[in-house]
Design a protein around this nucleic acid. Structure first.
Lengths: 211, 211
DNA sequence: ATTATAACTGACTAAAAGGTCGGGTGTCAA
DNA sequence: TTGACACCCGACCTTTTAGTCAGTTATAAT
């Protein structure tokens, strides 16, 4: 019950590909056909073993309710089938920013991508509580309007920075909030400008939504 | 039968979110509960209308076999739930390449991303039949071994280029094939080196698998 | 007022789907 | 050579699920 067998891996592979192709997992019958077996028990046996190894999850007793767990994707050396966040097709490219300050080296890493979405490498630890760690890659969508709670790319006098944008009904009304107790809030000044919103973070090779 | 109604959009939304959360579409019962109706017919009516508008597809008479079509995702202003291709966690970073030649400007656009996956902006039309158009963004995974048919990033004497890698049993055995009749095959020379494999193309804001 | 249409009800049916039971076979290691 | 184990069979059962049928209600358009 420790190492995946050939047959188990075959089934996991079949499930992965089926989901990739159709958008939903296969039925027992379809799995039986793919594996060329005739008994449900064969499938149940294999599924049970995949479950025991935490590669797969069978949810409530219900049709097609299989989920490949992260460990399963890892074994298959495939990325999980998660949504790619970030899109939009309009908008003008952002000018390259000159950067310094807290996130010292953002600048050389800023890459115009396409339209109004681009990728940034961030440096520093001021957003660790939001899941953004030193040297992480984030996907930023260029926009002009923000709502309180958005994680934004802000251009300040001494450079660009990633922070949470907060607007509420008490002074100072609008400010930038680091997600790390070590740092203080940043109040808005005339020279500051919000460039875009962080919509996704690259973690372990996968894009994850922001928190 | 032309414009989506509030109720129809609600259902589409419910399906989208369900798939996003679970990895597979909801059953009729789950949709009934989410919409707070008691009859299957209500769901069937709505699904039929969504289908007529090409927002959704019901596949073979089978459980949980719903697919949100591109038009449906567009209406929801959500990206389709497609896999994000490209990952792996090991591997050394690729050295920045000096570029010239056919894809003239790849170089300034090469961005080291993380580990052995990076993003490239490509210029030129030599791969249009493979769906890679001028100024498209592609995702490249750094690797050393390739199989015939892979689309690869090759470094040649006069720069880098994206081409299809072909190896077969007739001379010249191994060569690079542009996906455009206007261009000729490139035979291998000593100075050439394959840097990585194109695993995804950014199209209209979404990452798509390569063909 | 009439008509069309979206949305819905409630009882029902048929098929699909998951699961059980009681086995069997082949392989490998102790 | 005897278990342990992975994998499989086939008949059967139960629940889930999609779908049908014959209507009703609400709303908006002509």
């Amino acid at each position: 019950m420790e190492k995946i067998t050939k047959r188990q891996k075959q089934l996991l592979e079949i499930i992965y590909n089926y989901i990739k192709d159709t958008g939903y997992p296969p039925t027992f019958e379809e799995m039986r056909e793919s594996l060329d077996v005739v008994s449900n028990q064969s499938i149940i046996d294999l599924l049970t073993k995949l479950e025991n190894q935490k590669l797969l999850k069978r949810n409530e007793a219900s049709a097609r309710s299989l989920t490949i767990l992260p460990l399963g994707n890892k074994i298959l050396e495939r990325p999980p089938l998660i949504p790619f966040l970030g899109s939009t097709t309009a908008g003008s490219p952002m000018e390259t920013m000159e950067i310094a300050g807290e996130w010292k080296q953002i600048s050389p890493e800023i890459k115009e991508l396409k339209n109004n979405v681009f990728i940034l490498k961030v440096f520093g630890d001021s957003m660790i509580n939001a899941g953004i760690e030193n040297e992480d890659i984030v996907l930023v969508k260029e926009q002009k309007e923000f709502i309180s709670g958005d994680i934004v790319l802000a251009q300040t006098e001494d450079g660009s920075t990633i922070k949470r944008f907060i607007s509420d009904d008490k002074p100072p009304y609008v400010y930038l909030k680091p997600e790390n107790q070590k740092y203080k809030n940043i109040v808005f000044t005339d020279g500051m400008e919000l460039k875009g919103k962080v919509i996704s973070i690259l973690k372990n090779g996968y894009w994850e939504p922001v928190k």
